[in-house]
Computed example of a mutant assay.
Amino acid sequence: MPPFRATLQTRLVLETLLADPPAELYGLQIVDATGLPPGTIYPILARLESAEWVTSRWEDGEHAEGRPRRRYYRLTPDSVEPARALLAASAQRRQAHRRPAVPFPHPPLGGLTR
Results as ranks from 00 to 15, higher is better:
D78L: 12
T16E: 02
A46I: 14
T16A: 09
R5E: 14
E49A: 14
M1V: 09
G39L: 06
E59K: 06
P108E: 12
V80S: 07
P68T: 07
E59D: 04
W53M: 14
A6C: 12
A91S: 13
L87M: 13
P21S: 05
P3W: 10
L28P: 07
V80P: 10
E62F: 11
T76G: 03
T40P: 00
P100R: 02
Q92V: 09
R71I: 13
L8A: 11
D60R: 08
G27D: 05
P2K: 13
R47W: 01
G61L: 05
S79V: 01
A33M: 07
Y73A: 07
F104H: 01
A6L: 15
L86C: 12
A19W: 06
H63F: 14
D20A: 12
A101F: 15
R93C: 01
R47Q: 14
P103L: 15
W53K: 11
V13A: 06
R11T: 01
P77E: 02
R74M: 04
P38A: 15
H97M: 10
R57C: 09
P37I: 04
R57G: 03
V54P: 01
V54N: 05
L28Y: 10
L8M: 06
L86Q: 06
E81D: 13
G61C: 00
A23K: 14
L45T: 05
I41A: 05
L14T: 09
P2A: 15
Q92K: 09
E65C: 00
F4K: 09
G110P: 00
P105E: 05
A83P: 08
L112E: 04
